[in-house]
Design a protein around this nucleic acid. Structure first.
Lengths: 224, 224
DNA sequence: CGTTAATTTGAGACCATTCAATTTCGGTGG
DNA sequence: CCACCGAAATTGAATGGTCTCAAATTAACG
């Protein structure tokens, strides 16, 4: 969304600090008040929730350039965890500062709200993915989503993307076990749809992968 | 969220119209521009998306008193369908009017944004429900959520609630088949947790049902 | 009171899980 | 630079939860 020069300078005037986090570090914890708002400058992160038997469901992945805490900014206590997937660098501002900025600058307010609504659209698509697709479709869909977002945010060269996800994380995002995720990835490789290894994903046949995963990028709403 | 008298009168000044819809009528269609914003006055509705093989995933249910189109108000084209579950009466205002009101009145803006963030929190919980819980847990969790929301919005007498959902709809919301939903509901009845029939749900043992469904209402954020 | 929708029941098939063991990868220290 | 280590990926076989398909029963509606 295009912002005016004044909006941009208002953002530049924010007092923020850069912070580094290790892999697996928590940025937000369920049950705590999140008073900070963070922008992911470098590295990957994910939202996550634990269930009674101890297993974990990943709710979304986040790539460099995305806002992480908008979902919590008006809420009392966070209802989920946000965790670093790789080493991360984030820009941090206070919740109060962000809300003030939004109060003063309608275009920024709108942009941030839009961002949170696109996050919601992704959650909805994940509900569909988990509820009505089998293993092969789920994983294909997830790979399409990540590739589409990495491409449109400028992370990636051609059809090759940084891909620091473990198979266990893919499993926790798709509602599968790591074992079955492994087997399913192998069939996607065997079918010539993807190449995956050494923290790099390459989409070899985009059209076929999107077809397998029933992927339609409308729900991303041209997210940056 | 408490609104001032001025805010309330600004809302009262909106030019809205009441409309009735039949069961199964579409309020929003995927791929279309939603220029209207609706408040559900009476009846139940749900969000829904279809996948390639024609099967349907329900993404959320909505009860009287809830806003339906906030998720689409800043988006170009709707990414999902919204459909009436029972006969519905809705209040309709134009998208432009709602956005104007939000521009002028910070408290209303905040309330509506909060509403959309709580919707998101529910989507996230559904991701967890579909991804990491088995059939019995999923259905118990869904029943807890609906009961909690119906209770806090004043729809319900004691532990008995209007419950116009078919088993097929519960199946499409929990990612199961209607057949397996039927068998699972029977075990919940046999265990003495619920009583269900004639469009009425009674929670016989709230604590046990919440325990089975791993239900923690924090994610509802005391939604109205 | 007839007709359609919704619920219920049964049996067999299948996708994904579980559990356990093995191999490969990535990083670290000598 | 190589040996080592824990993490991650891979493989196998048996189990199980859920699905599929079909039919019967019951409830809802005009």
């Amino acid at each position: 969304m295009a912002l005016s020069g004044e909006d941009k300078s208002a953002i530049a005037k924010l007092s923020w600090q850069s912070r580094a986090f290790a892999r697996d570090a928590y940025l937000i914890r369920e049950g705590e008040l999140s008073v900070l708002c963070t922008l992911l400058l470098a590295g990957f992160a994910f939202r996550q929730k634990l269930v009674s038997d101890g297993s974990r469901q990943i709710i979304s992945f986040h790539i460099p350039g995305e806002l992480l805490d908008v979902q919590n900014v008006l809420l009392d206590l966070a209802d989920h965890n946000v965790q670093c997937l790789s080493r991360c660098t984030v820009a941090v501002v206070s919740r109060a500062q962000l809300l003030d900025l939004m109060g003063e600058r309608p275009a920024i307010r709108r942009a941030i709200w839009l961002d949170s609504l696109i996050d919601s659209a992704v959650f909805r698509e994940w509900v569909v993915n988990l509820g009505r697709r089998d293993a092969k479709q789920r994983i294909a869909h997830l790979l399409c989503e990540l590739a589409a977002r990495l491409k449109s945010s400028g992370n990636g060269e051609g059809e090759m993307y940084d891909f620091p996800f473990t198979q266990e994380q893919i499993a926790d995002a798709t509602g599968l076990t790591a074992v079955h995720t492994n087997r399913t990835l192998q069939t996607l490789r065997r079918d010539g749809l993807i190449s995956l290894g050494m923290s790099k994903l390459t989409i070899l046949d985009w059209e076929a992968l999107a077809d397998v995963g029933d992927f339609n990028e409308r729900y991303l709403h041209h997210a940056v």
